[in-house]
């Protein structure tokens, strides 16, 4: 319902708007993580390490709903909608193409909001383990959350035996997205 913007705004302004969207989104992932049963039982060090390595991937899952694959537009969290060519001009083409592709694949699985939330929890605790001090505790948390996701999906779709494995196949995609794009630059105006 938002007017497609971009024409009258400079690429610098769009870039700043894109960058500023990340700050609240990251804070929301941190709050989300604290709500995951068992997450706060991890050491503070391990909580920080998992968040640092997994937040970008959780954001990729969360941002899926902002990508309209049919109309090739992206709606930022501030409500502004941009056509893909406008954003491509900012040099974010490769990241956006990868996110469109990922959001189409994940979107096709038709997850319910609670299933998506549980999947994001699994994504976070499945993130890169470098720097983790208590590996056993993180693995136990991951196993518990994966079991919960599997049983939630199985009980809702008893005859769709492939959905859970299709979901797990998205984890390497997310890791690739993270490795390819988390070094993208953001710009914050300092007045």
């Amino acid at each position: 319902a938002w007017p497609v913007s971009g024409a009258e705004r400079s690429s610098q302004e769009i870039w700043e708007s894109f960058s500023q969207c990340f700050t609240p989104a990251v804070k929301e992932v941190v709050e989300f993580a604290k709500g995951i049963p068992g997450f706060q039982e991890l050491s503070q060090h391990d909580q920080v390490m998992l968040l640092k390595s997994g937040t970008f991937q959780v954001l990729m899952v969360r941002f899926c709903t902002l990508f309209n694959a049919d109309e090739r537009t992206v709606t930022f969290l501030n409500g502004q909608t941009y056509p893909l060519p406008t954003l491509r001009a900012l040099g974010m083409g490769s990241l956006l193409d990868a996110m469109f592709d990922f959001s189409e694949k994940l979107g096709s699985l038709g997850l319910e909001p609670d299933e998506m939330a549980l999947f994001m929890a699994v994504v976070l605790v499945s993130a890169d383990r470098s720097g983790i001090s208590d590996m056993r505790a993180v693995e136990q948390l991951q196993e518990g959350l994966s079991r919960a996701l599997r049983s939630l999906i199985t009980c809702r779709r008893p005859d769709d035996t492939s959905l859970f494995s299709k979901l797990l196949l998205r984890l390497p995609d997310l890791r690739t997205l993270n490795n390819l794009h988390s070094d993208k630059l953001l710009a914050f105006r300092i007045d």
């Binding site: 804070k27 503070q44 640092k52 937040t55 970008f56 988390s182 993208k184 630059l185 914050f188 105006r189």
Partner: peptide, 25 residues
């Protein structure tokens, strides 16, 4: 004149997480 702080997505994410946990200690 307007100046800009440029940082990678990963560094920006790390910065916000470190700030959050420091504030809540």
């Amino acid at each position: 004149p307007k100046t800009h702080r440029i940082m990678t997505l990963a560094d920006h994410i790390s910065h916000i997480i470190t700030q959050d946990f420091a504030r809540n200690q």
